[in-house]
Simulated scan of single mutants.
Amino acid sequence: MTTKRLFLSKKDDFDTQISKSLSWILRHGAHKLQLPIDSEGFIDLVAVISSESLQGKCTLEDIQRIVKNNDKQRFTIRRNCFTNKLEIRANQGHSIQTVTSLELIPIKPDFKSDIIHGTYHRFWPKIKEIGLSRMNRVHIHFTTAIPKGKEHVISGMRNNCGIYIYIDFPKAFESGLQFFMSSNKVILSPGNDNGIIEPKYFLKIIDVKTAAAMAVVYDIFRPTLNDEQVENSDSAGKNMSK
């Protein structure tokens, strides 16, 4: 069987390498590895350790330590009350479409925290045009805070993002978009029917390096001017240049 190659850095320590392998198996690779996964995302832990990706590389104790110490609390281990077997899941980030019953709390209209998506400048032109996409995943990920330096870890956002996109939650909610909070406090949204959150629901965009509002640079929030407004604007500009 050919499985997806995991891009592990030689600089990663043992626990980080195993954590990355776990993330791929539990979020994306279960079906490729022929591992039964339930609607809540749980897989038999012994089967995971014995899978092609992890066989001979780690022990049960290794997995339990990694799950306990994971800085973003990406995983949950439970004991199945019917089989008495240990099971493990990723708390979010799945592309496996049959995982539909994660423990998600719907966010209500009175939610007061910021909803922020972190991304990179190379993705901004497409995001500006079509919005945020869940791609092949089940949800788009957000946080309620931003990292305070590169050593500060926040679930739901990488600490080296170049752009922060703030969502206008009242407007998005009023339009029917749904948002949820996961068990490790990541904000998740499936987007619209096409898996998109359109730019009209962006409240502000911040360049991380300069802390400047990128709306000024990219003009995505400036209203379209009619011919009369354009003419008046041109006249004003000419008068100022005299």
Rank of each mutant, 00 (worst) to 15 (best):
T144N: 14
Y218R: 06
V138S: 13
F179G: 11
F180K: 07
G131K: 10
S233F: 07
I66A: 08
H121R: 15
P125T: 07
S9F: 03
D234S: 12
F14W: 06
I165P: 01
L54F: 08
L8N: 06
S241C: 00
E61K: 13
E174I: 03
V153Y: 05
K150N: 13
T2N: 11
K238R: 15
V216L: 13
Y166L: 10
F142H: 09
G156P: 07
S21A: 14
W124N: 02
G176D: 02
V186A: 10
A145M: 10
Q229S: 14
V138C: 05
Q92F: 15
I107H: 06
S189A: 12
L22P: 04
K204N: 12
T144R: 08
K126W: 03
Y218S: 09
I105G: 00
R65S: 15
D114C: 11
D193K: 13
K72G: 02
R79Y: 00
G176M: 08
D44C: 14
V186E: 06
I49Q: 05
I165Q: 08
K72N: 12
T3N: 07
Q64I: 08
D71C: 06
V99R: 02
H139P: 04
S241E: 08
T59Q: 00
I63Y: 06
E228V: 14
Q92R: 08
R65N: 14
P199C: 11
E228N: 14
P36S: 14
Y164L: 09
S53W: 00
G237E: 10
I163Q: 07
L104R: 08
K10N: 12
N70I: 07
N194C: 07
R79V: 15
K20C: 06
F82P: 03
V230K: 15
I187P: 01
N226L: 03
K72H: 03
P36A: 12
K171P: 00
H117Y: 08
D114A: 15
Y164M: 04
S241F: 01
L225F: 08
E174T: 10
P36I: 07
G131W: 05
S235F: 13
R134F: 00
G118L: 04
K242M: 03
I107L: 15
N159V: 01
L45I: 05
T210L: 02
R89H: 02
N184A: 12
F202G: 09
F179E: 11
F42L: 11
D168M: 04
F180D: 03
M240P: 03
Q97C: 02
T143E: 02
S53F: 01
H28A: 14
K209V: 01
D227M: 13
T83C: 03
